[in-house]
Amino acid sequence: MAGLTKNMQLPKSVLDMKFMKKTRERIEKELENTQDHGSLYSNIITNEMRSASGNFISESSFIFCETMLDGRLSFKGMNPEIERLMELENGDKTEECSGEMVKDVSDDILAKKMEKFNKKRPNPNPVSELKNTKRKK
């Protein structure tokens, strides 16, 4: 809303009215200010400064350059609170690495078992199918 009102300008007919004198002066002043802005710093701003690209990001700390562990560590139950945090962090990492959980039952055995299971119950969910057909109607 504020942006809109800033960009909008009052029509000239309104500004010409008597009681708008102060507003008219203010707008003229603002215009002058913005026009002077460029020339004010023209001797300081060089072309190189204008063309300087922002491709370089300065970083004053090593922590963004090197991979580092967190600096607070505890081992063998010295500080259970810290060890719990460490486990949480390590747990995330190991899961990311393996991607899969360790399986107790292999995929093949599971597939065979499921086949038998499906044979026993040819129509596993007749009630829901009925409902669906009703809805379609």
Binding site: G71, R72, L73, S74, F75, K76, G77, N79
Partner: peptide, 16 residues
């Protein structure tokens, strides 16, 4: 730290 962590219980904080 990997070779020390199983030897005895300890806690460490390293400041940069």
């Amino acid at each position: 730290l990997n070779s020390l962590k199983n030897e005895w219980p300890f806690e460490l904080a390293a400041g940069m």
